[in-house]
Design a protein around this nucleic acid. Sequence first.
DNA 1: TAGATTGTTAATCGATTAACAATC
DNA 2: TAGATTGTTAATCGATTAACAATC
Lengths: 219, 219
Amino acid sequence: MIENKNCIIRLSHYKSALNRFKSLGFIKIFSDYLADAAGVSSAQVRKDFSLFGIAGNKRGGYQIDALLEQLNVILGKNQIQNVILVGAGHMGAALLRYKNFEKEGIRIVCAFDIDPAKCTTKQEIPVLPLSELEKYVAEQAVRIAIICVPAIAAQATLDMLVKAGVKGVLNFAPIQLKAPEDCSLSYVNVETELENLIYKVNARERSDMITREKAALQD
Amino acid sequence: MIENKNCIIRLSHYKSALNRFKSLGFIKIFSDYLADAAGVSSAQVRKDFSLFGIAGNKRGGYQIDALLEQLNVILGKNQIQNVILVGAGHMGAALLRYKNFEKEGIRIVCAFDIDPAKCTTKQEIPVLPLSELEKYVAEQAVRIAIICVPAIAAQATLDMLVKAGVKGVLNFAPIQLKAPEDCSLSYVNVETELENLIYKVNARERSDMITREKAALQD
DNA sequence: TAGATTGTTAATCGATTAACAATC
DNA sequence: TAGATTGTTAATCGATTAACAATC
């Protein structure tokens, strides 16, 4: 893989911005406008595209439809991606009901939980006992999973998923996990994000206060 | 601010790893072990600490309690941080019921929604009409907010929050937002994370296939 | 053509890592 | 003391940005 770590995430942002431009009736777009909508520089946009051999027209910008087509191929949107979810607690249940995945070609096909009370086959997406996970993953050739179990159970869950053959895991549990090289791991950690925000806000308040104090001293 | 962008996120990870070590009965820890638990290098750990003037004992490592104390001060854990949430849909409701925030000193004090049917003062965390947001933020001096509204409404929501005086926003809506300089913005984007994982898994499969083809050609 | 935008190279910037002197 | 670990400096690595030639 040549391209850099953040590039794919940006391609994903370009795609969603392009969909918005398209729905507003735009046919073509310049790197400048797309950059603005995605919150990056126009050089970044052109660089990202050139990494993937996406070409525009000098002086004419990019055709939105053609661009979307190419991004969809890169991001694997040409076929629906089946995903499973482990842990049907508050967060897991919210993701099961989240409607935006489907329009992005991502489908949560099944959930698993260790608690029999949470298991059901009576809703749109079934929740099965954890004991059936390995068989399901093997039979359905599932490659992507989402972990929504408590931190204490997260590593064991990951181990089980890896053993079953899962190759990519998105972990919502607030703990760093260890996976073998052939399984990718991403994190969503809301606590950490909030802590980071709180730090920034506090740091700015402190520096504002110092600025004010200096100003007061000059008077 | 001297320190780098990812440093605070790592401090947050160190903190949670240290809490686990502590609960296992450890008193002291070396940068090596902490690094391993947080998934980074030991040089990174020592560098991060030195940026904040956190010192250990040469040859003796770090006292876990003292370390946690210092990290808590840096991360603003010495006082409870009040946070509001806008948009009480699936994701918003899941966050309202999420119990891990409290033990991190983060408290969602109130939620807001434009839909009167979602509003209630009969549960632990009230859900008020959006029209009361500005008054509430001003009166309670809220500085941090979480946006869980649909993408289409996210920018207007952010504008409203900024106008009311919020200084840091965590956005769950899948769209890039624009905020003035004095308001920090972070994102949680589950679709993007999944797309990134799918890309990596597909890329690895492709490169494995090429490897196998080459091997087959050599036979 | 003149003007504007792409595509790419080289420069810059920032973050991570390696290495090792200081020292407990 | 000898050995091991910290704290820090310098080297490396990678990502972003600036700049501009190519060209539509």
